[in-house]
Design a protein around this nucleic acid. Sequence first.
RNA 1: GUCUCCUUCGUCUAGUGGUUAGGACACCGGGUUUUCAUCCCGGCAACAGGGGUUCGACUCCCCUAGGAGAUGCCA
Length: 488
Amino acid sequence: MSVRVRYAPSPTGLQHIGGVRTALFNYLFARSQGGSFILRIEDTDQERYSEEALQDLYDTLNWFGITWDEGPLVGGDLGPYVQSQRLELYKGYAEELVRKGLAYYCYCTTERLEQVRAQQDKTKSSFKGYDRRCRDLDAPPEDGAAQPVVRLKVPIEGKTSFTDLLMGTITRKNSDVNPDPVLLKSDGYPTYHLANVVDDHLMGITHIMRAQEWIPSGPLHVLLYEAFGWDPPLYCHLPMVMGKDGQKLSKRHGSTAVRDFRTKGYLSEAMINYISLLGWSYDDQREFFTLQELKELFTLEKLNKAPGVFDYKKLEWFNGQYIRKCSDAQLTELLLPFLEEQQVVDNPVTQEQFDILASALPLIKQRLHLLQDVGEMTRFLFQEIPVPPADQLIPKKHTAKDASRVLKRSLELLEDMDQYSVEQLEELFKAESESMGVKLGAMLMPLRVAVTGSRISPPLFESLKLLGLKRTLSRIEAAVRLLDTIEE
RNA sequence: GUCUCCUUCGUCUAGUGGUUAGGACACCGGGUUUUCAUCCCGGCAACAGGGGUUCGACUCCCCUAGGAGAUGCCA
């Protein structure tokens, strides 16, 4: 039987690292097995539903290049793939269980449920959860809620086990299973438990790969399959993604929404690569993988059991690596939106600006870690800069006079810079610094700051060339004027 | 509280009874260099603890400890 797996997110928030990792692993498993990857929208929470979240889901998967064989937008034979469009179905199955005596209507109000919970907390009761008041009712109580919910009759005795490909067999006493969880909510929507079991069965899902936080409800789901008389699929609970403090990764730890990483200038290839290594490995050497390679190499056997800490630093390192792997043309395309967004260049970019960027690319490529850094790094090439403060222009252990002196000399040397190569300019300044009796650095730093506005910049002479004679000289002159106003 | 799962350098991990316990990130040195970055070289650093099993345990079993997750008309 061919493998069928699914990613079934709930559109209640932006796609985050953990969710995407689950999607990726499902996708990779399907592809490596020649199976199908199904996308299903679990929009059964009316309260938290968000249109934006749904759009973000599509955007994110598209950005990563994760395609689905069946699901919203692409269709499929076993749809609809949006749970809010399958309400009648769940209702029917819930009623079937009630008829069979395996589920029951519960008329308890939220208020009562809260009271029960509060009481259990107060008395430190070892029994947590619903007290099963409505389990054996003959008729609806007088003071019951208008709209009942349907609850599963979890057996009091016995135990339930399921097979997890990663964890082995997991067994739980039925008395430890969530006592009679709600299957059908009073608003007519199913809960996750019901919807997921019904849909996975109807959609022919063979393997359920989801995060380990779901392990505790595994037995419950198996109980549901049994109630329906269905065979449960195989389970594979993926290790969780944690933050630095070892807790489940959340906003507290930094960005978790894929969209945030995208706007900061992470490459999808870098993220795929890094995320694929969170809980999975290939061997003890290789750590670079394209999506295409992953689709062939992924195996369940190499999954790790232990939760993994999301390492922002290593992701950033991967990003730098991938930026350097880009061709200049690719990188230009990637960078342009950032420059436009940051108003470093016009929007749309002019031909002249495009050419400058193209020429600057080799200079900035190995300096970029995040695409968004490009603005700060290249702004001086596209726009006029304010005259840098004097203390920036003056090298350590030097005076304003010193700085002015070397800049004036630089001015003379650069008059003919268009006739020299970068190498020749280097030689020129090297020789000059010697004859002036200053260190090369003390000569070039004022120049760098005067022209680029910063002590940190792309290589100096290349930058001057890009900037052009006129702007180079005028920036130096402005710096000199400033320095000459300073009293020693 | 109860239940379940997890445990190799700070982090991600390789390892399936016999290894100087390997790699990567981070960090710290050094080199290249006009700044920054890249790159190169080197270093630091781990089998949670205790019992077994065995000629021999990081590898198998048990216990303890620690961590995490679940315990909702959220998924």
